[in-house]
């Protein structure tokens, strides 16, 4: 039997024709490759200090293309290793928030009534707490760690997804195909997992992609405030922070990690926009 053209393959065909989105996809992919192959790409160690004082704050040169920082460490090396932190934290945090948000959103949207009202008021309440403030408090209470930062970023970012998914599920519920499966005798788990969630998936993926950019920014802000992943592990936000005192004398220490953040965030946002343009269900239903 000949294979049909699914909405996925149709969306992918549209995506491929969008040069900006493809460029963004390549950029993001390249960032992940850099993070994975960090040890291969650079001969230096990202953490250990240079032996000689004259190695500090060296301007970009042949040996150190992006210069060195106040401990004589190679900025490019730290940038490359720093991508591991930014990408892992943001990816894991977004996964947590998307899974949490989708569960809450689909339960609220499908069940309706009092459950919906309670869950959504909870979302409203959580959304009214300033995110950075909440995270600063938690980090002050517990010890700083990679895991804590990731969980906090994920746990404070799911409300938007919950609202989005709830809205989508509500509008899908009114569609006749949902009545049809209900009339066939499907249980609510089958209806939600097989018939509702797959129809919301593109929306979830798009929102997750757009959200990753934001999470990278928040993580950088946390690091800049000295509350991110603890040093000496390199993280972009922290590198910007460390270079701020010597911005006039050694501009490269802050500038390059700052650029890295910008490129990554812009890359993710363009990728998200491209995915939305190609896969948004509004276009083909």
């Amino acid at each position: 039997m000949s294979g049909g053209r699914s909405l996925w393959s149709a969306g992918w065909a549209r995506f491929r024709k969008n040069p900006l989105a493809m460029a963004a996809a390549v950029t993001v992919l390249a960032l992940y490759l850099v993070a994975i192959f960090a040890p291969v790409l650079t001969p230096y160690d990202p953490v250990s200090h240079g032996d000689l004082p004259e190695m500090r704050h060296q301007p970009p040169s042949r040996e150190h293309p992006l210069g060195t920082d106040k401990f004589g460490r190679d900025v490019l090396t730290r940038l490359i290793y720093g991508s591991r932190i930014s990408l892992t934290v943001s990816f894991l945090a977004v996964t947590i928030s998307v899974v949490l948000g989708s569960i809450v959103g689909s339960v609220a949207g499908y069940t309706g009534g009092i459950v919906d009202a309670v869950l959504m008021r909870m979302v409203d309440a959580l959304m009214s707490i300033p995110r950075l403030f909440l995270m600063l408090t938690c980090i002050a209470l517990f010890s700083r760690s990679f895991l804590l930062v990731t969980i906090l970023l994920g746990a404070t970012g799911w409300m938007g997804t919950a609202r989005l998914v709830r809205g989508q599920i509500l509008s899908l519920r009114g569609r006749e195909f949902v009545s049809a499966v209900e009339a066939l005798g499907a249980g609510s788990r089958r209806i939600v997992l097989r018939h509702l969630i797959p129809n919301v998936l593109t929306v979830i993926i798009v929102s997750a992609t757009l959200k990753i950019g934001l999470i990278i920014l928040v993580e950088a802000a946390l690091s800049f405030l000295g509350l991110g992943v603890p040093p000496p592990t390199p993280s972009w936000g922290q590198m910007v922070y460390e270079g701020r005192e010597v911005l006039l004398d050694a501009w490269w220490v802050s500038t390059f990690p700052g650029l890295a953040i910008v490129v990554t965030v812009v890359g993710y946002n363009l990728l998200g926009d491209g995915l939305r343009d190609s896969f948004d269900p509004v276009q083909f239903t």
Partner: peptide, 21 residues
Amino acid sequence: RRARRKIQMIFQDPYSSLNPR
């Protein structure tokens, strides 16, 4: 759910009555 087999429905809108996925 078991008894639902006995009675089935054909819907008005051929577009919204099929799961696009």
